[in-house]
Structures are given as C-alpha cells and as structure tokens.
C-alpha cells in the first residue's frame, strides 16, 4: 500500500517540481500541525514546565537559604571568637591579679615571720641573760658564804688553840680543801 501510494504521489510530484508544493497533502498537515502543537503545548504546560520551574525556584531558594545560613554561622563564629578572646583576656587579668596578691601575701607573711622570729629570739636571749645573772649572783653568794665559813672555821681553830706555823698551814690547807668540797657540792 505504501509503495503504491508513493508511486502515485511521485508521479504527481514530477509534474509540479518540489513535492512541498503538492497541495493535495496540505489539508491534513495543517490540521495535524495545529492539533499536535496544541497537544504538545498542553502536555508540556501540564507536566513539564511546572516541574522545571519548581526545581529551579527551589534551588535558587535553597541557595539563598544556604547563603543566609552560612552568613549566620559566620557571624556566630565571629561572636564566639570575640567572646572567647574577652574570656581569655579576663582570665589573664585574673591570673595576674591573683599572682600579684599571692606575691604580696607571701611577702607579708615572710615579714611577719621574720618579725616574730626576731621577737622570739630576743625573748629567749633575755631569758638566758636573766638565768646567767641569777647564776652569777647565786655563785657570788655561795662564794661569799664559803669565805665566811672558812674565815669562821679558821678563826674558831685559831682561837681554840694557839697554833704554830706548821699547824696553821695545815689548818689553812684543811680549810681550803673543805671549801673545795663545799664548792663541789655547790655545783
């Protein structure tokens, strides 16, 4: 059927030049061009164009949102950085202040300790001096008492019997040894 139709139309075309000017095929092509165009336009308008438009709109919206988010994140980061720096600065100042305070306190404590130590030492020294003084006085008193004892003893003996020289020396020696005995007991 196709080839016979072909042959028929070809014969027709032979007489009129370009096959495009064969008016016997105009009507159907006009009709189908109009119908096909309208159908395609309907289909594209219904199923294709909104889909593409939506995607493009969504994308540009998403890109805008993303940019906004990124900007916000950047601002947040900036704020955090500033806050962090402030905190660091505060901490540094606090540390310096604490250190200074500790230094002052330590030096105060040292001064106080030195003062106290000095006072203690002075007190101890005074106490020792007192002790020594007391011992000296005691010793003096002891010596004095011993000398009196010796003198009284010697006098007693001298008075009791007249002694010769040799006897006297012996008596003094005796007294001295007595004294020495006393002295030993003194200590």
């Amino acid at each position: 059927m196709i080839s016979s139709a072909h042959a028929a139309t070809e014969a027709h075309a032979q007489s009129s030049g370009l096959p495009q000017f064969d008016s016997s095929v105009f009507g159907s092509q006009i009709f189908w061009t109009i119908v096909s165009f309208l159908v395609l336009m309907y289909l594209l308008k219904r199923y294709v164009i909104p889909a593409i438009g939506d995607i493009l709109d969504n994308r540009s919206k998403k890109i805008g949102d993303d940019l906004q988010h990124a900007e916000k994140a950047r601002q947040d980061a900036d704020r955090l950085l500033v806050a962090y720096r402030e905190q660091m600065e505060r901490a540094r100042q606090m540390a310096a202040a604490t250190l200074e305070e500790a230094r002052l306190e330590a030096s105060a404590m040292r001064d106080q300790a030195l003062t106290e130590l000095g006072e203690e030492l002075a007190k101890k020294r005074a106490a020792a001096l007192d002790e020594i003084e007391r011992a000296r006085v005691q010793a003096m008193e002891d010596v004095q008492a011993a000398a009196v004892d010796i003198a009284m003893l010697a006098t007693e003996k001298l008075i009791a019997k007249s002694v010769n020289r040799a006897k006297a020396e012996e008596m003094v020696k005796d007294a001295v040894s007595h004294l020495e005995q006393n002295k030993a007991s003194l200590h």
Binding site: I2, T9, A13
Partner: peptide, 13 residues
C-alpha cells in the same frame, strides 16, 4: 527530492 515526498499512509477525511 523524494525525501520530501509526503506519503499518506491512512487516507481519511
């Protein structure tokens, strides 16, 4: 030119 030859497969009017 036969490339431009319109061939009616189904005739209806």
């Amino acid at each position: 030119l036969h490339h431009f030859q319109v061939v009616k497969y189904i005739q209806m009017a």
